[in-house]
């Protein structure tokens, strides 16, 4: 077995440098690598390009790295929940590239699957199609989209083992598996790190081959963005 365990988030981030491109897992605040984000803030790494579906909220998630001006560019599908984000975007401090969510997911998946590019119908006839090759398949126009290239992928899983195998819970899976596959170096933080042999190999969502470093997060706040409930009858 190849051991992937590192001591903590800070050790896990070794080698991350200013100007690098990072993938950061999560949908909204669900399934985000909150320990790695906190450690990255502590390290003060700057001029980062972050590929992440959303940009966190003020004071949590990637919002923490926006506050400290560590992010130069966001590549996302939806970014509306963050005042500081809006301020930096409107003032031109922050570059933003908006991508249809399915295309974002597939550009991650392609990167982790050795597929350099693919065609998708999403965005045809819109500004997303500007400058892109259009090709007809089955009488329908499709856009050529390219795989991402990320120096590091920061992902969060529910359980993981010493070999780097990952299991996700609920909708916290979202972008994490494809990003884990796509990173040149993939770091996984997990809620529970277990010895090899503990997890059922049939139930692994991401095989350890894709994960280079793994650690158990010290603290998970798991903040809820929109708490919605129904009355008890």
């Amino acid at each position: 077995m190849i051991r992937k365990v590192v001591a903590n988030a800070d050790v896990a981030l070794e080698g991350i440098q200013d100007g690098m491109t990072l993938m950061v897992g999560g949908f909204g605040l669900c399934g985000i690598p909150e320990n790695l984000i906190a450690a990255l803030r502590q390290r003060g790494t700057r001029n980062l390009t972050c590929i992440s579906n959303n940009a966190g909220v003020d004071g949590f998630g990637l919002g923490l790295l926006l506050e400290t001006r560590q992010i130069r560019k966001m590549i996302s599908s939806y970014v509306g929940e963050n005042d500081e984000f809006e301020r930096q975007m409107l003032s031109g401090e922050l570059e933003v590239e908006l991508i249809p969510q399915g295309t974002l997911a597939e550009r991650c998946r392609a990167a982790g699957a050795g597929i350099p590019a693919f065609y998708t119908p999403a965005g045809f006839g819109t500004e997303v199609a500007e400058g892109k090759e259009i090709r007809m398949f089955g009488g329908k126009p499709h856009l050529l989209e390219h795989a991402f290239d990320a120096d590091f992928a920061l992902v969060k899983a529910w359980k993981g083992d010493e070999a780097g195998n990952l299991i996700f819970k609920g909708t916290a899976r979202n972008f994490n598996p494809m990003m884990a596959m796509a990173g040149r170096i993939t770091i996984a933080e997990v809620e529970e790190l277990v010895p090899a042999g503990t997890l059922d190999p049939n139930s692994i969502h991401v095989p350890g081959i894709f994960v280079h470093r793994i650690f158990q997060g010290g603290h998970f706040e798991k903040r809820i963005e929109q708490r919605t409930v129904r009355p008890r009858a």
């Binding site: 599908s77 939806y78 509306g80 969510q101």
Partner: peptide, 10 residues
């Protein structure tokens, strides 16, 4: 302020 298309285009 443009928030993004999310999954709508797909």
């Amino acid at each position: 302020m443009v928030k993004g298309m999310g999954g709508a285009m797909d």
